[in-house]
Amino acid sequence: EDDHHMEFCRVCKDGGELLCCDTCPSSYHIHCLNPPLPEIPNGEWLCPRCTCP
């Protein structure tokens, strides 16, 4: 699979289990988001950068 997502968290710059945005290459740990997510959501997810007006 050709995955163009970042291999590190945009916030802390560390790797591991990352949540990938469905519209851009950004990846995040769920605990690095503000507010943090309790678990990885099902379905499409947009990062804070893509949901800002």
Rank of each mutant, 00 (worst) to 15 (best):
residue 40 I to Y: 13
residue 3 D to G: 05
residue 7 E to A: 05
residue 30 I to T: 11
residue 34 N to D: 09
residue 36 P to D: 05
residue 40 I to N: 10
residue 6 M to K: 15
residue 7 E to M: 04
residue 33 L to S: 03
residue 20 C to R: 15
residue 35 P to W: 03
residue 38 P to Y: 07
residue 50 C to K: 03
residue 51 T to Q: 11
residue 51 T to R: 10
residue 37 L to S: 07
residue 32 C to F: 00
residue 3 D to C: 15
residue 22 D to Y: 09
residue 47 C to M: 02
residue 39 E to A: 12
residue 2 D to V: 15
residue 21 C to M: 00
residue 23 T to E: 13
residue 2 D to R: 13
residue 50 C to S: 02
residue 29 H to A: 01
residue 10 R to V: 11
residue 4 H to G: 05
residue 49 R to V: 12
residue 22 D to H: 12
residue 9 C to P: 01
residue 5 H to I: 15
residue 28 Y to N: 03
residue 24 C to G: 00
residue 49 R to M: 09
residue 14 D to N: 07
residue 26 S to A: 14
residue 1 E to F: 05
residue 6 M to F: 07
residue 18 L to R: 04
residue 37 L to C: 07
residue 47 C to N: 03
residue 39 E to H: 08
residue 48 P to N: 03
residue 52 C to E: 15
residue 23 T to C: 10
residue 14 D to G: 15
residue 51 T to Y: 07
residue 40 I to L: 12
residue 50 C to R: 00
residue 13 K to T: 08
residue 15 G to S: 10
residue 23 T to L: 07
residue 39 E to T: 13
residue 52 C to R: 14
residue 39 E to L: 07
residue 34 N to R: 07
residue 21 C to F: 00
residue 21 C to A: 02
residue 5 H to Q: 14
residue 27 S to N: 12
residue 48 P to D: 09
residue 25 P to K: 10
residue 7 E to Y: 01
residue 39 E to Q: 11
residue 33 L to C: 04
residue 49 R to Y: 07
residue 16 G to F: 03
residue 44 E to T: 09
residue 41 P to K: 09
residue 20 C to Y: 14
residue 1 E to A: 03
residue 30 I to E: 10
residue 27 S to D: 02
residue 31 H to R: 11
residue 30 I to K: 11
residue 46 L to G: 08
residue 16 G to Y: 01
residue 21 C to Q: 01
residue 46 L to C: 14
residue 16 G to L: 02
residue 25 P to V: 07
residue 24 C to Q: 00
residue 7 E to R: 07
residue 37 L to F: 06
residue 46 L to D: 06
residue 28 Y to L: 02
residue 1 E to N: 15
residue 28 Y to A: 03
residue 22 D to M: 06
residue 10 R to E: 10
residue 12 C to Q: 00
residue 4 H to S: 04
residue 38 P to E: 09
residue 48 P to A: 08
residue 29 H to W: 00
residue 39 E to C: 07
residue 2 D to K: 15
residue 9 C to F: 02
residue 34 N to W: 04
residue 11 V to N: 09
residue 12 C to G: 03
residue 32 C to H: 02
residue 52 C to Q: 15
residue 4 H to V: 12
residue 42 N to V: 13
residue 42 N to P: 10
residue 41 P to W: 04
residue 12 C to T: 01
residue 17 E to I: 07
residue 3 D to P: 07
residue 19 L to Q: 08
residue 40 I to K: 14
residue 11 V to R: 12
residue 7 E to W: 03
residue 48 P to S: 06
residue 3 D to S: 14
residue 24 C to F: 00
residue 4 H to I: 13
residue 51 T to N: 15
residue 29 H to G: 02
residue 31 H to M: 10
residue 37 L to D: 05
residue 51 T to L: 12
residue 11 V to A: 05
residue 3 D to N: 15
residue 51 T to K: 11
residue 41 P to A: 08
residue 6 M to D: 13
residue 32 C to K: 00
residue 1 E to Y: 07
residue 49 R to E: 09
residue 36 P to H: 04
residue 31 H to Y: 09
residue 25 P to G: 09
residue 4 H to Q: 11
residue 7 E to C: 08
residue 8 F to C: 11
residue 43 G to Q: 11
